[in-house]
Design a protein around this nucleic acid. Structure first.
Lengths: 344, 344
DNA sequence: ATGAAAGCGCTAACAT
DNA sequence: ATGTTAGCGCTTTCAT
């Protein structure tokens, strides 16, 4: 009975390696965490023992003891939006190359969830934080700054704070897109707005208004309908626009998902795109290119934004005193099949 | 100079709460981790102090000391496939409801990466593991079982081991889909295969062959071309099929992505879908419904598969001795616009 | 170049 | 019901 447990096998620890190799466990620790001044012969024996035993460092313990956790927290609003997924892909690609792992928090835009997650992350769950288009609450950004915790904001700026930011030229992109519509001959242009808590939404609307004004087209409040960056919202907004007596000849949606919703509503109404009405999106998510008709849209370098954000964060991790950087990447009008000259 | 550091603020620990509330830190620990037998007045004071200080438990320490980490590891092959994303969404939804967090490992199907990650996860990084369509290596499944580490296989079975599995009726789905094509009048049906390391790919091919045989249509080796479950592979496979003298009148792709690639190749060739050639997919990813023409496909309940897997895993976490379960969910033929009767 | 010892924040016996 | 005492696996002074 004595020793005959069917206990689960235990993972080997540095202690096991110490016994196995004949050195103290502090030497093992040094060796395994890449300390320079270890006699080559010692290192060799230790590494050999580690491999033989199948040793894998326990990150929790490492991080508790003051080392890095090699985990990056990523806060996303949702997973049901290809725009987010694209950014996530970029993040993941770059993280993979750098031996960091990713701990994912989906806030679903729930009240307070962002703040809770941020607190958890700061408290040792990860070495750094990537915030994708968050509803910024001053409270947690403050906490982040107070603790000097490394983070990067993606596609959301926060002017008041000295934060690292990666974003795109929303205003300019919206301006160019609107101008494209105007030059085609459109003057009754509807706009499906995004979430007003997000900078990107505000900037796109601003670009839209600016282009209108620069080309002498009066801005009509009634043509701007609220949306939520989701398909459902774009669908509803478009129905509203379609119910007017003076239906717009073109609709600029604040993002592709809204545009896809708009297409659905328009088709349901029996109208043709782009013959009867033109549709323009923003983001260039993968669906935009396979949709029918193929969506003309403003491309954001989503993937690259994710990658740049990771690079910034990792740099900051290596050099905590580095200057704060705000990176703005260019958007670009992608002309496909959903826009044409107005019918009337 | 004495006390004037600009040191970062430290996060409060149970020790701080102990001091603040006047109880020992073990009482604080008990209270905060939901121990029952604490005097209400004590609990109240402790909780109050914790809130006042903005206490957040340090998961690393918790887990190191033997508690749960409240982290579930999720191993996915890639993020560039909506099939994976759908499963991931299901996982995330269910995990969110249960206060677990998700640590994501993307293997990119790299040699050895799966095994390395699994070792890390077992070694305290997470309480349980979800494996999405992995290339199973006996080595790590063995390790998982040896250590009695809770895990669930999603969309990949491993007959030899007593593992928890959530999958779908691949063979049946492929059978029904093939039959649908046959009844339409097709007899020259091409098949774009999936990755041979995955059960799902094997079962779908089996279902295809079985339907052919049951309907007296000879199986032709040349009509089965290798694919890789990606768009690129579907594209290449289709070009190969199209180069034949006896071009198939229909192509059944082992997954939607391959089907999308097929559509591209066919269109490039100047042929019409479904007039000249019919296309059928598998999975029903979101893109399938917006593609042009809308893709007829076999739907897998991807989202649900993710959710069921989480439920199984959490149940197992609560009750380590529960029976191993293999869950098989139904697939379903979704008829849209990409298939029609053969032209010739 | 290496060993000894302290401690990261917490849980879990073991006391009382 | 609450306090005391060991660790969990590791990094990091501080010695030597």
């Amino acid at each position: 009975m004595a020793e005959e447990t069917n206990k689960k096998k235990r993972m080997p620890t540095i202690f096991d390696i110490a016994r196995e190799s004949g050195f103290s466990y502090s030497t093992v620790s040094r060796t395994l965490s890449g300390f320079e001044f270890v006699k080559p012969s010692t290192r060799e024996k230790i590494v050999e023992a580690a491999e033989r035993l199948g040793y894998v460092p326990n990150q929790q313990a490492r991080s508790l003891a003051g080392g890095p956790s090699h985990l990056i927290g990523v806060l996303v609003p949702t997973l049901t939006n290809d725009y987010i997924i694209q950014i996530l892909q970029g993040i993941d690609d770059e993280l993979t190359r750098s031996s960091y792992n990713l701990i994912l928090y989906t806030t679903n835009r729930h009240q307070g969830t962002e703040a809770t997650y941020v607190a958890t992350i700061m408290n040792g769950a990860a070495d750094g934080l990537l915030l994708v288009a968050p509803f910024i609450t001053d409270s947690y950004l403050e906490a982040l700054n107070e603790r000097d915790f490394p983070y990067v904001l993606i596609d959301q700026d926060y002017e008041a704070e000295d934060s690292m930011v990666v974003k795109a030229t929303n205003r300019e992109g919206a301006y160019i897109a609107t101008q494209y519509l105007i030059k085609m001959g459109h003057s009754r242009i509807g706009f499906i707005a995004g979430l007003p808590q997000l900078n990107s939404a505000i900037e796109r609307l601003a670009g839209f208004r600016e282009a209108l004004s620069d080309h002498g087209i009066p801005f009509r409040e009634e043509y701007v309908v609220p949306g939520n960056f989701e398909m459902r919202g774009g669908y509803r907004a478009t129905r509203e626009l379609l119910a007017r007596s003076d239906v717009p000849t073109a609709i600029f949606a604040a993002n592709d998902l809204s545009a896809l919703g708009a297409i659905e509503a328009i088709r349901e109404r029996g109208l043709r795109i782009p013959l009867d009405i033109s549709i323009l999106g923003f983001d260039d998510i993968p669906q935009a290119a396979v949709a029918y008709p193929k969506l003309t849209t403003v491309r954001q370098p989503l993937n690259q934004m994710g990658r740049e954000a990771v690079n910034l964060l990792l740099k900051r991790l290596q050099n905590p005193d580095m200057d704060m950087v705000k990176l703005t990447l260019n958007t670009q009008l992608i002309i496909r099949d959903s826009c044409d000259i107005p019918f009337d």
